[in-house]
Design a protein around this nucleic acid. Structure first.
Lengths: 245, 245
DNA sequence: TTACTTCGTGTCAAATATACACTTTGGTGC
DNA sequence: GCACCAAAGTGTATATTTGACACGAAGTAA
């Protein structure tokens, strides 16, 4: 569309096609073995849709009229996990006009939304949580909420595979600089657990001695007077992470 | 808002308050002395508003119903600058519910928009252009479009000062890793020009020899068989930048 | 020819990153 | 209590990168 100088006033945007805004959250957790992402399963029973149409998806929902984007992301996350106060980061906004228009998604949206045909632009957030601090609770339009290993994620609703992939990339590139890895671990952790986590996120092996050298010169990582228990080998020292002010 | 399992179906989003989506572009250019950002001045004459209410702003406008976000950013940029095919990067989405609600902005929006009171969420892009390749052309609702040195930017409309600041930070952090600096220079440039640019963007002095060492090991920077002319001192060698594939 | 201005260049020291292997510790089972 | 197991924990030598630093060369103008 190009507008000439003269026609401006009458060319004001008179479009009647509304655009909806949503937030989606890629919520990561770590169980000591794999990095997981929290997915919900669409509740087709509740919507009286055939079971086989149920798709898994990232937790997300429309932004409310007077809610900031961050507040919206926090709310969606809280609704699905009852967790508050966690690291939460906007990383990209996905706005392809066709992103919710596929028939597989339309069927679901027709049951859920007043305007299922509307284009939806979604602002994507990612966050990291300590998996041992809560168990996800399915709520609202989700039949189930469950942790899925990131390398076992199935085809998701909408463009959520693409969003998830982008979240993983963002997490990789911010892991080192922003020390976000600690958010995934339990309060007390061993350096081996931390290293395993880094290796999983970065998808490469790290040298044990060099890794420990690097970690130990971060003064946010504090050695505790405590050791791992219940392992059938030499127990490792436990550490905690302390965010500065 | 929390929803219980049972009330889901009747709690579908029935909000009548629509949210608009816009894109804003922070377009940077370099004139050899300072980094500039392209600002427009709102055309109050055309809107029959008092001249003194005119504000400067980043170029931006509502996203059209069937337009992707990138396409929208490209369109706005093209409308204002006639430039195409330039580096263009989404960096953040600003969505405070109050971001266009100030009275200074409402006056303008009442003239321009069908729904001036509506909340607007804006997806922000930044881009870099060679200043010598085009002169900005004011168009549409802009009375003027002009380059302003980034340290002389006045109070802008809406939350555009905040958006601009965020764009500068993004540019700083992506300068090194993504070689975006070259986009700001003319096709043929000297290493001193490049260094001046880096110093302006990063806002610190760099060591000449170390800087040149770093640049010269990038094989995208190609020395030309040409020298600077028209200077009253030893002319510098010219280089060009070649993006790989 | 001189004066002026920016160009263009190399080395050393310090800090950082990488590669690499063996002893220690606690638990388990006999 | 002894032997075995498994992972914990630790240091050094080398290569690479970073940062500090000063002066002769090239062209222009008077």
């Amino acid at each position: 569309m190009s507008r000439s100088r003269n026609s401006d006033k009458i060319m004001m945007n008179t479009a009647t096609a509304h655009i909806d805004i949503s937030v989606d959250c890629a919520l990561f957790g770590f169980d000591g073995e794999a990095v997981n992402v929290l997915l919900i399963e669409q509740d087709t029973d509740q919507m009286q849709l055939p079971k086989e149409t149920a798709q898994m998806a990232l937790p997300g929902d429309l932004v409310l009229p007077n809610e900031s984007l961050h507040a919206s992301a926090r709310r969606v996350l809280k609704e699905l996990t009852s967790l508050e106060g966690i690291y939460l980061k906007q990383f990209y906004t996905f706005g392809s006009p066709e992103r919710v228009a596929q028939e597989k998604d339309q069927e679901w949206l027709r049951s859920l939304r007043m305007h299922p045909e509307r284009r939806v632009i979604t602002v994507a957030y990612y966050s990291l949580v300590k998996m041992d601090e809560f168990a996800p609770q399915a709520n609202s339009f989700a039949a189930r909420a469950q942790w899925v290993k990131i390398d076992e994620v199935p085809d998701l609703a909408f463009d959520h595979n693409e969003i998830l992939e982008s979240a993983v990339e963002t997490m990789q590139s911010e892991l080192m600089t922003k020390h976000i890895g600690f958010e995934l671990l339990p309060e007390k952790f061993t350096l081996s657990q931390l290293q395993t986590l880094y290796e999983l996120i970065l998808d490469k092996k790290l040298d044990k001695r060099n890794f420990r050298k690097n970690i130990k010169r971060m003064d946010q990582v504090i050695p505790l007077d405590e050791k791992q228990t219940g392992v059938l080998h030499k127990p490792a020292q436990l550490f905690k992470f302390e965010r500065e002010e």
